[in-house]
Amino acid sequence: DDWEIHFNNITIRLHGVSEEQIEELKELIKNGAHEEELRKWAEEVNR
Rank of each mutant, 00 (worst) to 15 (best):
A33L: 06
E20R: 12
R47A: 15
E24A: 09
L28T: 00
H6K: 12
L14I: 08
N31E: 04
L28Q: 01
G32K: 03
N31H: 06
N46D: 08
E43G: 04
E43Q: 08
I22K: 08
D1G: 13
A42K: 03
W3F: 11
E27K: 12
E19K: 14
Q21E: 05
I12S: 05
E23Y: 12
H34G: 14
A42P: 01
W3R: 04
S18I: 02
Q21T: 08
E27H: 09
I5N: 02
T11C: 05
N8F: 07
W41Q: 01
E24T: 07
K30N: 06
N8L: 11
A33C: 09
D1Q: 15
G32P: 00
H34T: 15
E23K: 10
I12C: 10
A42G: 03
L28W: 04
R13S: 08
K40Q: 09
E35C: 11
E23V: 08
K40V: 04
A42F: 12
L14M: 06
Q21G: 02
D2Q: 11
E27P: 00
R47L: 15
I10V: 08
R47H: 13
K26Q: 06
N46K: 10
K30D: 03
V45G: 01
E23M: 12
E43V: 04
I10P: 01
W3S: 02
E43D: 11
E36K: 06
I10D: 03
E4N: 07
G16M: 07
E44V: 06
L28K: 04
W41V: 02
E19A: 12
D2S: 13
L38F: 05
V45C: 06
A33S: 04
R39P: 01
I5D: 02
T11P: 01
K30C: 12
D2Y: 15
H34A: 13
H6Y: 09
L25E: 00
E35K: 04
F7R: 01
E44C: 08
F7D: 01
G16E: 06
E24G: 05
V17R: 03
D1V: 15
K40L: 09
T11V: 10
E27Q: 12
K40N: 06
N31V: 04
I29P: 00
R13F: 12
E36R: 08
E44G: 08
K26E: 05
H6E: 06
L25W: 04
K26P: 00
L14D: 00
G16Q: 12
V17Y: 05
D2L: 13
E37Q: 10
K26N: 07
L28D: 00
D2A: 11
K30A: 11
T11Q: 01
Q21V: 11
Q21N: 04
A42W: 12
S18K: 07
R13H: 10
G16W: 14
E4G: 03
I22N: 01
E35R: 04
L28P: 00
E23L: 12
W41M: 02
Q21K: 11
I22D: 00
R13W: 10
E36F: 11
K40Y: 04
E19R: 15
E43I: 08
L14G: 02
T11F: 15
I29N: 00
E43L: 08
H34K: 13
K40A: 10
K26T: 05
E36L: 07
R13D: 06
V45Q: 10
I5W: 11
I22W: 07
E4L: 11
T11Y: 12
L38K: 00
E37V: 10
H6I: 13
W41R: 02
E4F: 13
A33T: 05
K40T: 04
R39S: 03
N8I: 09
Q21H: 08
E44S: 09
H34R: 13
D1W: 15
R13P: 02
E24I: 09
T11S: 05
R13A: 04
G16L: 12
F7C: 09
N9C: 14
H6A: 08
E24L: 09
E44I: 08
H6C: 12
I5C: 12
E44T: 07
I12V: 05
H15A: 06
L38M: 03
F7S: 02
N8M: 13
S18R: 10
L38E: 00
I10S: 06
V17E: 00
E19N: 11
S18W: 03
E35W: 13
I12D: 01
I22F: 08
E36Y: 13
N46Y: 13
R47F: 14
Q21P: 00
K30E: 06
E20L: 10
V45W: 15
E23R: 13
E27M: 15
L28E: 00
H6G: 03
S18M: 04
A42R: 03
I12T: 03
W3K: 03
W41S: 01
E44Q: 12
A33W: 03
H15L: 10
A42M: 12
N31S: 11
G32C: 03
L38Q: 00
V17T: 02
I5H: 05
I22C: 06
F7P: 00
R47N: 14
D2E: 14
E19H: 12
N31A: 12
S18E: 02
W3P: 02
E36P: 04
R13Q: 05
R39C: 09
A33P: 01
T11L: 14
G32F: 04
V45F: 14
H34P: 11
A42D: 02
I29E: 00
E20V: 09
S18C: 04
E27I: 12
D1R: 15
E43P: 00
E20G: 11
K30G: 03
L14N: 01
E19C: 13
N9Y: 14
H34I: 09
E4D: 08
R13V: 06
E23I: 09
D1M: 15
W3Y: 14
T11A: 02
E20S: 14
I10K: 06
I29H: 01
E27S: 14
R39Y: 10
S18G: 05
I12E: 02
F7I: 10
A42Y: 11
I29R: 01
I29F: 07
I22G: 02
R39M: 13
E27A: 13
E37K: 05
E36D: 13
E36I: 05
I29S: 01
E35G: 05
R47E: 15
L28S: 00
I5K: 03
V17I: 11
Q21W: 05
K30F: 06
H6S: 09
E44W: 07
E35N: 05
E4C: 12
E20Q: 14
K26R: 12
E35H: 06
L25P: 00
E24Q: 10
E43N: 07
H15W: 15
F7E: 01
R47D: 12
I29T: 01
E44Y: 12
I10R: 06
H15R: 11
N8W: 07
N9W: 15
R39F: 12
N9R: 11
H15I: 11
